[in-house]
Amino acid sequence: MSVKRDSFSVSITVGAYGSAFGAAAVAADFSVLQACLLSLLLFSGASQFAVVGVIAAGGTPINAIATSTLLGTRNGLYGLRLAPLLKLRGWKRVLAAQITIDESIGVALAQKDEAQMRKGFWYTGFGVFIFWNLFTLAGALGAQSIGDPSAWGLDAAVPAAFLGLLWPRLSDRKSWVLAGFAILLALSLTPFVPAGVPIISCTALAIIIGWRK
């Protein structure tokens, strides 16, 4: 019972965030169809916002793809952790891969036994998928029907959405130090290199900080 309740509450709360994504994408000149395809096919919040954020900042598509992909690497590591638990083959593995995201793994790992963990993964994965996509469409249509995105604060909604995704990750001192340096590096590079490059350059900082324990 409680695994269902956990899954549902996570799905609806996170799903609602999809409206911010849909609106942000349209404000950055993506079409409603493109916004919806990102939610259906890419389906990983931070990576989706990254595609929109890099393009909105004037970056190239290659840069957007690279930034989004680097943000998605953790989903691969989640899959690695889940595989022995789910033990899936064929099309079920394809489905499970698509819904391997922060939330499905988070709810799964919070459960006590393996049967509950599997339920938590599937319920949350599908739940977030459904609500995230519905809300993306709503947000995209909403943003399409309004005029100047700045007049509605949509240009600030993008960095605010990133901040909401970042905040729970600032759990230790190293992360705060890294965040501080990332701001300095990204902004000091901005006037000198093509748009989008300052963002992906900060990967180097993650490698430096993570190199030693």
């Binding site: 680097l70 943000l71 960095p159 990133f162 992360s175 350059s201 993650a206």
Partner: peptide
Amino acid sequence: FIPVALLTALI
């Protein structure tokens, strides 16, 4: 650390 670095830079 990669999400921390990239999300901060994006912000």
